[in-house]
Design a protein around this nucleic acid. Structure first.
Lengths: 210, 210, 210, 210
DNA sequence: AATGAATGAGAATTCATTCAT
DNA sequence: GATGAATGAATTCTCATTCAT
């Protein structure tokens, strides 16, 4: 499981680092927080656990962050962006329609396997930072809906309620990521993705004969 | 939001009530715990909050339960069963294939709107009681996969990886329940369900002309 | 380790059993208390532990005893008497002087090995029931001093401060009982006792030559 | 009753003070604990009682110690060393044989009168920290046995089982310390010690005529 | 007499946050 | 900037004792 790489402009307002030394300390704190939250969860995590991992004194934490909540929020925002970026990067530029959704799912599964701790952190935000959690999933759903809209415009995707479809597709992706990414990553992605592609493409019903 | 109705054999081992009075007290504690966990979440919830709602002394909690964890587990198990029961009850006996999945989604959405606190409690189990959480979703996925198997046998559903499909369908249902049940229940279920039915039935791709 | 057999008239004042059934219940409570205090010590012991061992309901305890302290005091008194009785019984009637002390030590060592829990209970009374503890050791010291007085009168024991001697002898006995009775009972009593007899008889100094 | 002076390296592992201010606070806690345990006993003592005496906040206790048990253990270890040191200091360098035991007893009686709370704390360790209790008395017995061995080698003390003798002498000393030191310190030490010296020297039996 | 449910005061322990150095 | 000691509110859990049945 690779380490997360949060952006460096995540300090609480008025606490931005002013020196290179300060920026390095803040970065160590963010990396340490990603590990601590990923391993222990938000509530079990402790500031002292973060500073111990970061190798700083306890009080140093408050040089850059206001509270446990604020560093958590900073992380969630950052990771939400990472997930979006990974999904975008995993899709070929010219890809459209169901093909594009297939590639996005594959990219997401690879990302979930690579960054299980990110998965956990974002998911726990449902309780620890609901605002960021909603922002993450609403943003993701909007991006999916936007892709579907493009697919419709291109004549590749049928007309329908693309918001509902986007939430449905996102739910599929997330649960498949949990089951076949975080819990058990032994099944080849190449087995999972085609099953979903077929479902999205043509559904699962056998058309009644006429 | 209706109150949950936990089964009455949920005490910690060796702490089962031996009189009717005791059973009634334990029931009050379980109902109070459902409210407390639903409103505050597992970590913010407190034993004293539970007993305050239940109208008992603090110590009375420990007459029936060992810890906050143990009553939470008891609740999750119970609610997991409630969800399964509601889903089963919402499906007409002779229903098969995609029809059955449509009915199950509708039943689930109604249940999520009716019991938002259950939704929240089960979801938080991902962190507070992972064993029960896995048991819940694995059980649910197995039931869905079983229905798909029957649909395949009946010639209503195409061949395919029913385990992957089951997780995909479950993810769709859960996220739609979150978005259109718990977060915002103003959109008619009759608008959401057909969109998903169509997706399951025939997919969203426009078959390329030939 | 044999079970202690407390006398049956140990109820708290006004709570003496009035029926044979009641007397039996109280006896079960006393036996259970001896086990519980012996195993767990006064402070770790709990009333519910006692009633669990006795097979009675919690509330039944208070039918016969006022408090944890009162049953402990009852036990200590009773056991103090047991120790005295065992010491007396272990000494042959005609025995006098140092012989008698040797026999008393041997009897005490055998008793300590046989009733380790009594040893522990009496010792813990130093903190849990100081009045009974003092009464026990002052009574024991007086009996020893009385024996020494008789020995002096009989011309078997030299003149000296018999109170100080009694406390010295009692201390020897108690610590030997702890070390070679309770902690480790593998060394034959026949090895320990003669060493002490020789000490009491003639001391340990080699008389300086003349 | 003089205050105990515990050594300053007694913090729980990983909690050693890193500044002089921290060391001073820890010292205040240890002194306060000696008073609290001495007056109230281990079980009646409370962390809050200790911090109240020390003039610190409750949480400060946990900056240096893990639990009530751990500070108690630290104290017992420290006091055990104090007793040994006092005994050693009370014996003149060239003293040998029974003379040396006489001086050791006198030193111990003075120490017990001076530090009644130490007496109590070590004694209660029999129940609250049995490991330290055994270590204390086994160490003490070994030192006494070592002195006896030297006396034998010097031709001042007769051959015999010096381990048994050491436990006998230690028991004498401890009980005399309890009776004539802690419980009642009004009797001059100069009255007690000679009686014991005579006993050790020549025993108490009148040699039968022949 | 016996039962066991209910009580609530009390204790230990945690940890986010503040602050003096 | 960095440090780490100090704080104290909050929480969980225990258990002797009371009381209604």
């Amino acid at each position: 499981m690779a380490t997360a790489k949060p952006s460096s402009s995540a300090a609480s307002p008025g606490k931005e680092p002013r020196t290179a030394r300060g920026a390095a300390t803040m970065r160590r704190l963010l990396d340490a927080a990603a590990m601590e939250f990923g391993e222990s969860g938000f509530y079990e995590a402790s500031i002292s656990g973060i500073t111990r991992r970061a190798g700083t004194a306890l009080g140093t934490f408050y040089t850059y962050f206001d509270s446990k909540e604020s560093i958590f929020t900073a992380l969630v925002r950052d990771m939400s962006a990472s997930v979006a970026k990974a999904a975008a990067a995993g899709v070929s530029p010219g890809s459209r329609g169901v093909d594009r959704e297939r590639e996005a799912l594959a990219a997401f599964l690879r990302f979930a396997r690579e960054h299980k701790e990110i998965y956990r952190i974002i998911d726990e935000a449902e309780f620890a930072d609901p605002v960021s959690y909603r922002a993450h999933y609403q943003g993701t759903a909007q991006r999916i809906a936007g892709r579907l809209d493009e697919g419709v415009a291109a004549g590749l995707i049928s007309h329908g309620d693309n918001e509902v479809r986007a939430w449905a597709i996102m739910g599929m992706n997330v649960f498949l990521g949990l089951r076949f990414g975080v819990w058990d990553d032994s099944r080849p992605i190449g087995v999972i993705v085609p099953a979903v592609e077929a479902l999205l493409s043509a559904g699962i019903a056998i058309p009644s004969k006429r």
